[in-house]
């Protein structure tokens, strides 16, 4: 029997610290895309809340910190970090290992992300628990605010290397500017 070695999406690429910014991979564990059928969203949310502890998120929001749900498109959300319960009123698709998810922390995090995405990341607009489907460089992906200087960025796994490359380049540019200014 061949013994296969499981590798995360950013294995060998992260963690990295550049200037004031640290980029680390998030090992999300089990991930499931949940798409409630027409008119079933409330029932699906209640069922999720009963079995996992978090409901179906409103558009552009994420719910929970342990097992959590993150909105990821019109009438769709990802359940992250928990096995998907049996949901009669929804289509559920296993997305485990399908996403490259990284966490970015540090004083210049917003400045770094602002180089890559067109959305408004200011704290009074994009608050903790807010999430957005948007562009990250040339890729479509998701950005979620975890804290004052902490964000999570996710793209499809095939683009993991590009994501790390783009974040690295943006962070190096910001760090260089800070160095020159000082």
């Amino acid at each position: 029997m061949v013994k296969l070695i499981a590798q995360t999406a950013c294995a060998g690429l992260l963690p990295k610290t550049i200037g004031s910014v640290t980029v680390t991979e998030v090992d999300a564990g089990q991930v499931t895309l949940i798409a409630p059928h027409k008119g079933q969203q409330k029932a699906v949310s209640a069922a999720l809340k009963t079995s996992v502890g978090v409901g179906f998120p409103a558009p552009n929001r994420s719910v929970g910190t342990g097992p959590r749900t993150v909105w990821c498109g019109k009438e769709q959300a990802l359940l992250i970090g928990a096995p998907c319960p049996s949901l009669a009123g929804a289509a559920c698709v296993d997305h485990s290992d399908a996403w490259a998810i990284v966490q970015i922390d540090g004083a210049d995090t917003v400045a770094v992300l602002a180089r890559l995405t067109p959305i408004d990341l200011r704290a009074n607009v994009f608050k903790r628990g807010h999430t957005a489907r948007t562009l990250i460089g040339h890729m479509t992906g998701g950005i979620t605010r975890l804290g004052a200087q902490s964000f999570e960025v996710m793209v499809m796994r095939s683009m993991a290397e590009t994501l790390v490359h783009d974040l690295t380049q943006a962070a190096e540019n910001i760090a260089a500017r800070a160095q020159n200014a000082g």
Binding site: P59, N60, P118, I119, A132, R133, T134
Partner: peptide, 9 residues
Amino acid sequence: ICGERDRRE
């Protein structure tokens, strides 16, 4: 759904 967004999206 998402609010005001850049035309590139």
